[in-house]
Design a protein around this nucleic acid. Sequence first.
DNA 1: TTGATATTATTGTCAGACAAAAGGGGAGGC
DNA 2: GCCTCCCCTTTTGTCTGACAATAATATCAA
Lengths: 227, 227
Amino acid sequence: MSSLKPLVQEAAPLRRKISASLREAMTNGSLPPGTRLVEKDLCQDLGVSRTALREALRELEAEGLLERGTRGVMVAGVTPDEARNVYAVRAALEGLVAEQFARQADEQDFAALEAVVAALSTAYRAEDFPAILSEKDRFYEVLCLGARNPVVHDLLTRLNSKINRLRSLSRSNTDRGPQSLREIEAIAAALRTRSPELSRAAAVAHVERAAEAALKFEDALAKPDAA
Amino acid sequence: MSSLKPLVQEAAPLRRKISASLREAMTNGSLPPGTRLVEKDLCQDLGVSRTALREALRELEAEGLLERGTRGVMVAGVTPDEARNVYAVRAALEGLVAEQFARQADEQDFAALEAVVAALSTAYRAEDFPAILSEKDRFYEVLCLGARNPVVHDLLTRLNSKINRLRSLSRSNTDRGPQSLREIEAIAAALRTRSPELSRAAAVAHVERAAEAALKFEDALAKPDAA
DNA sequence: TTGATATTATTGTCAGACAAAAGGGGAGGC
DNA sequence: GCCTCCCCTTTTGTCTGACAATAATATCAA
């Protein structure tokens, strides 16, 4: 009886769908940073009551995706400084889970790792950006699973949602796809050696390169007056 | 005109007071892990409407302090594994900000550091546990401020709120007050040398010792059947 | 005791209401 | 013309009451 599927029931409360919808709109750019969210308008657009909408807003606010203005909430932006810090934190956290994975993962975890790296490889080659992002998230999920560290997974998810827009923008505007894929394969290779030090180094290196690309891109975005 | 006080206005929305009250109840033990939160009861106890209460619940839920049961929410507990991971993450994050502080702090930041270390020293000597906890939080705030890294401050606050109960329990039941104070002074001393490596090491060491104490204590809590 | 069924309790959502505060805009003063 | 003050509108924060859906519980039958 150990091979029964978890049987996930999809009883998503309405507010969860609302927050998911808003999150999506924020990352895909239809709700750019600084946009004021007016409850009545959103209610009409989404066809829901203010009660449910406001609960969704509280969730997003607690996640840091919205910030309070003088009146109500607005879409939170990411300053270059903030982005830099987010990447620094990601480096620290991903280094940690890589280390833990190297120490604690079993064969099943490694199998999952192979699978997701393969999927990523396919997505990269197809230049399917949405797929790349979601497979990347899956990659971190597998990593944290093998590291037996759901705490980090939670934090990474939160951090990534903050810089998701930046991620997708920089990904489609820079050309480091193959580079990125190679780095990820390097992480997987390091993990297979079971060396905590090598694994950590590979993970940190990957984040640092990604940070470099994304920040260069954002700097260009932040000061278009320099043109 | 640079020395005007910020004049923090206390326009706390009701839901914020509610979530603060519940948080407090959770850390001080009057709402132990596993407790089911029944909306109607809470409304009566707090004297607020369900609307406001539910928004507060969504905030706490997003913070990870509450988890969904089959029906409604319950107070989230912290398993020993989870606690271990939280401490591992704290070590990584506090090491990072210590490094950043050593690199980027100015005289003002160092002055604030001295001040909070002095306050901590007083609190420790007086064995004033609530004061210790709040000064400790302040210590991290100063650290992150000097490190120019509000992102980490946010994450640390979140993590700490999860293990706050554990922190206060283990603090009043173990006897590592003087030890802890010495470690903190060691961090401050390392920061003064401006050496990123020394600072990181001191910060990491402190978290690791705290983890050791807290986890030993929690293990004892988790299996009282072994007696 | 077990199994099926009725009852109750509780959540998720809605609609409508209101005070309070923020914002905007125009009238009047300079 | 520009600034200030006041009024009006908009928007939020909160409350009340309602309802369907469903989980928990009690009730009854076999």
